[in-house]
Design a protein around this nucleic acid. Structure first.
Length: 661
DNA sequence: ATAGGGTTAG
């Protein structure tokens, strides 16, 4: 009793002193206050501190932080308690001192959180942060790890450009960030799919005199795999061994994944089998290795094999994780075996693994694809009952599901609801809606969505712009398309898809000069593909420029990789329109020689044209032939040729007719 | 650090 009275008296005295000190601090007084505060913090007397929070001045705070640098956890608790105080939130300097201490004490996660908070919630620019960190470093906390952490914080909030600026600014000041920071930056570029910039930055890094470490090599392999450059990836793999690195499981896994992405499952298998021997027993396959392989088989349309690998894993005593199950489940569902997917999911639940958002999203997606909207919404409510809440993926899946089933208005309603709830984070849902609105000839509706994105502060991405541009091009509103394009290039680089859309627009409106100069520009930028030339080819065919069409076709064939099935479809259609059926059929054989197979468009083209000119017998012969080649006729095919019903009434034929309708 | 689910071109 006596003690507590005494203590409270002392406390009052001190509080009064602090309030006084705020207005008029005699020399040395701040030192006394500092000591007093620090003692109270060390004893975790938080209530006391709450009372004098208004006395925490901007000059006092850094001193408190430095005083307590040996007890980072205590310091952090103090910061969290006074974080809302104006003097704290307004003083970037004190926060930076705290960050430096956290890095020094190897509390990297805390330092990262603090940095991200300052940049996101309080709006500090990365370069401002850098300045503040440097000036707080002057007073005794210099550490390059702080700068590494800043680069990492930038990449984690998606500010790749800022990360680079930080690295460059430091370079100008004679400070080299570590190879780890570069690796982090490079890895982020790959994650956001900017392989081009990845290589440019890698070259720059080497130019500055850095040497690759194990992680850098892994990233190089990954980048090459992403570009389906498997032989090059393998050669980097050998190069890293040659310079003395022992590849770890991550490197092997990237090769396995890369081989799968390049559709070379045999190689993927071989790598998995050889990990042990290649590493002389130091490295063995892990769950990720098998997950990559399983994913490869699922994407190749062989979920049964994926299921077998899953069983084999269990046999080997390796525990499949939720990603293993999620991948196989999605594999079954995407290959038309939703039931198998559900079965496997219950098996997973029996093994005490609870379905997560990715699994729900996958099921909802494939149910939507099957047209089972009510099944999808049932699953969605089941998911939410289980306290798993929709994310951006779910939103996109549902909105696209509704659109593709003809319920664009429903999709718009859902989208508005999501906006009302403030749940929109990325451009995906908008992109889907814009695309569907454009497709249903409602470009003005699409434009409204784009404008609303700006109002909401949601940044449209290249796909948003690309979709909008394509919409305008298809609606023959080239001026609007160019307007959007001009807006876009203020922030984003145009990509090949966008150039192709614009080219198609120019071709369709007959602007020969504009399309030629665009083609020249695309060639200069080395940005063109089969679609580019198919667009041009079909335009030549449409306006009857025979010579140009044939020349282009010949040149494309000479270039080898530049022809595909669509190229042949365009040419076959062209020849048919000219009445040259003989040649059209020859082109069909040529198509086979190139390993290309006809599709329903080839079918429709040939049969509708043949029907008018040739005998019934010939038409039926062509029909049988194309079906034997594996062509699956679609509704359009059926509608195009069903009128002369007499072409075939065999049971098989009627069966597919019925299947189509 | 590597593995699963959503957007764009003819």
């Amino acid at each position: 009793m006596f003690v507590s009275v005494f203590a409270s008296k002392r406390r009052n005295l001190l509080v009064r002193g602090l309030h006084f000190g705020k207005k008029f601090t005699p020399p040395g007084a701040e030192d006394i206050i500092l000591k007093a505060i620090c003692v109270n913090i060390s004893q975790k007397k938080w209530k006391f501190l709450d009372q004098l929070s208004s006395s925490l001045t901007t000059s006092l705070l850094p001193r408190i932080f430095r005083e307590l640098r040996t007890s980072p956890l205590l310091l952090l608790e103090f910061y969290q308690r006074v974080g809302g105080v104006e003097a704290v939130s307004c003083s970037l300097e004190s926060c930076c001192i705290l960050i430096c201490i956290m890095v020094e004490r190897k509390n990297f996660d805390v330092a990262l959180c603090l940095m991200k908070e300052l940049m996101i919630s309080r709006g500090y620019l990365p370069l401002e942060m850098l300045e503040a960190l440097i000036s707080s470093s002057d007073s005794g906390f210099p550490s390059s790890a702080v700068f590494d952490a800043l680069v990492r914080a930038c990449t984690q909030i998606g500010a790749a450009v800022d990360a680079y600026e930080v690295i460059m600014k430091l370079r100008m000041g004679g400070i080299q960030v570590s190879i780890h920071a570069w690796n982090n930056f490079l890895s982020h570029l790959l994650k956001i799919g900017d392989v081009g910039r990845f290589w440019a930055m890698y070259r720059e890094m080497i130019l500055y005199g850095y040497y690759e470490n194990l992680h850098t090599f892994n990233l190089l392999i990954y980048a090459l795999c992403k570009d389906c450059k498997l032989p090059e990836a393998l050669s980097v793999f050998y190069r890293m061994i040659k310079v003395g690195f022992c590849p770890n499981i991550v490197g092997y896994n990237m090769l396995v994944d890369g081989a799968c992405m390049a559709d070379d499952l045999d190689l993927a298998h071989k790598v998995v089998e050889k990990i042990e021997t290649m590493s002389r027993g130091y490295v063995s396959a892990n769950v990720v290795t098998f997950n990559c392989l399983i994913n490869g088989y699922c994407k190749k349309g062989n979920p049964e094999m994926a299921g077998d690998i899953l069983d084999k894993m269990i046999e080997m005593g390796m525990k499949p994780n939720i990603r293993t199950y999620a991948t196989v489940i999605d594999g079954y569902s995407r290959n038309g075996c939703l039931e198998e997917g559900f079965k496997l999911c219950s098996r997973m639940v029996e093994n005490n693994i609870v379905p997560n958002l990715a699994i729900y999203n996958s099921f909802i997606h494939w149910l939507c694809i099957e047209g089972d909207i009510s099944g999808a919404s049932l699953l969605l409510s089941n998911m939410m009952e289980n306290h798993i809440f929709p994310d951006q993926f779910t939103h996109s899946i549902i909105i696209k599901g509704l659109c593709r089933n003809g319920l664009v208005n429903e999709a718009l309603k859902v989208h508005n609801w999501i906006i009302d709830k403030n749940l929109v984070e990325d451009a995906f849902s908008n992109n889907i809606l814009i695309n569907y609105l454009c497709r249903s000839n409602n470009v003005s509706g699409a434009k409204q969505l784009l404008c609303r994105m700006f109002v909401q502060g949601l940044v449209p991405d290249v796909v948003t712009y690309g979709t909008m541009i394509d919409g305008y091009c298809k609606a023959s509103k080239m001026e609007s398309a160019i307007e959007v394009y001009t807006d876009m290039i203020k922030g984003d680089e145009p990509n090949l898809v966008i150039f192709n859309s614009i080219l198609d627009g120019f071709c369709k409106e007959g602007s020969t000069d504009l399309s030629s100069s665009l083609i020249e520009k695309m060639k200069r930028l080395n940005m063109f593909d089969t679609i580019t030339f198919n667009t041009l080819l079909s335009s030549y065919c449409r306006i009857g420029r025979f010579k140009e069409a044939f020349d282009l076709f010949m040149n494309m064939r000479r270039a080898g990789l530049l022809v595909n099935r669509v190229t042949y479809n365009i040419m076959i259609n062209f020849l048919c329109k000219l009445g040259l059926f003989e040649q059209a059929t020859q082109l069909l054989s040529l198509m086979f020689c190139q390993g290309l197979t006809p599709d329903s468009v080839t079918y429709t083209t040939l049969l509708t044209n043949l029907r008018n000119k040739s005998s019934c017998e010939e038409v039926v012969k062509m029909h049988d032939f194309l079906l034997l080649q594996g062509v699956i006729p679609d509704r359009q095919t059926y509608e195009a040729i069903v009128r002369p019903v007499d072409i075939d009434t065999s049971p098989e034929f009627m069966e597919w007719v019925n299947d189509c309708v």
